[in-house]
Simulated scan of single mutants.
Amino acid sequence: MPLKAGDIITFARTFTLRDVEVFTAISGDEGIHHVSPDEQGRLVVQGLLTATLPTKIGGEHNVLARTMNFDFLRPVFTGDTINCVVKIEEFEKQENDRSAIHAAFLCKNQNEKEVLKGNFKGIIL
């Protein structure tokens, strides 16, 4: 079913130690908080790894992002389950058989605390 303004799309993910280890290796983001566990045995998940939640939703709908804005509100830790809600703010068909899209997103942890919010604009191929 095609997207339209007002649509809400959700996705949840629990971040694991392995996720952080793989992302650390790929990104080179080896901050001490990403490689040394806290007193509860958790690592801090990289912000850009957390940001894969709204980008996954964009990827499922073939969005070629033009701009992305992220506000990182609080840390995400391994073991946290993050729920991402994306709302399609604008969706407009273009004359070249593509569609322009503007969406806002909000991600909360399992305790309903906001961890990430922002928006993206792009086109759908």
Rank of each mutant, 00 (worst) to 15 (best):
A5L: 10
A103L: 08
R74I: 02
T52G: 01
R98I: 09
I101Y: 02
G41R: 09
G41P: 07
P2M: 15
G47T: 03
D19M: 09
P37S: 13
H102D: 09
F23K: 05
A65L: 12
A25L: 15
T24A: 11
G118V: 07
L49W: 00
G47F: 00
E89S: 10
V45C: 04
G58R: 01
L53F: 09
H33A: 13
V45P: 00
F77H: 05
G31V: 07
V44N: 01
R42T: 11
H61K: 05
I26S: 12
V76F: 00
D97L: 11
L125V: 10
H34M: 13
F11R: 07
E39D: 09
F11T: 09
V76N: 01
D38K: 08
P2V: 14
T10Y: 06
H102L: 08
L49S: 00
T52F: 04
L3T: 06
R66M: 05
F105H: 00
K121Q: 07
V35I: 15
V35L: 13
N111H: 13
S27F: 06
R42W: 00
P54D: 00
A5D: 13
L106Y: 07
N96V: 05
F23N: 07
T78Y: 00
T67C: 05
R13I: 14
F91W: 13
L48D: 14
R74L: 03
E90M: 06
K117P: 03
G79E: 06
G6K: 09
C107D: 03
G31H: 10
E92S: 09
I8E: 06
L64F: 14
T24W: 01
E89C: 05
Q40Y: 12
D71R: 15
I82Q: 00
P2A: 15
I124Y: 04
T10V: 13
E30W: 07
I82A: 04
